[in-house]
Design a protein around this nucleic acid. Structure first.
Length: 110
DNA sequence: ACAGTGACCATAA
DNA sequence: CTTATGGCCACTG
């Protein structure tokens, strides 16, 4: 198949679908979109998400750590955004991460 | 074309 | 918990 479109857009689309108060992971998005690129490119896509309407603060790594908090202009912004949505964050990690995890392959696959 | 780097992931020790 | 290794692909110099 031809290049499906910019996979960036695919990633953004999924991220926008993440419900408020929930979080998802790079790996989950990569698996859902079957990106051969792997989770790394999802992060790369997020890097370009600046200026777009993409809640990148809901996208974290597989252990629930706010790996990209440093890229929000200020390290405290990402945590603030999450807590503002009802997500508890302690020591740069999401509390009840597994419970708050919104995996498209699991939630949308129905 | 090659090497280094990266908002990652999984496994191993 | 940390450190190491392999994979995966895109961007930069």
């Amino acid at each position: 198949m031809t290049p499906p479109r910019d996979y960036f857009e695919e990633v953004y689309d999924v991220v926008r679908l993440v419900p408020k108060g929930r979080v998802t992971t790079y790996g989950a998005i990569a698996r859902y979109l079957s990106l051969r690129a792997g989770a790394r490119m999802v992060g790369w896509a997020m890097n370009a998400s600046h200026g777009k309407d993409v809640p990148a603060h809901r996208v974290i790594n597989s252990v629930g750590v706010l790996s990209g908090k440093h890229f929000f202009g200020s390290p405290s912004v990402m945590q603030q955004l999450l807590e503002d949505e009802g997500v508890e964050v302690v020591d740069d990690r999401v509390v009840n991460f597994k419970t708050l995890l919104w995996d498209p392959s699991d939630e949308l696959a129905l």
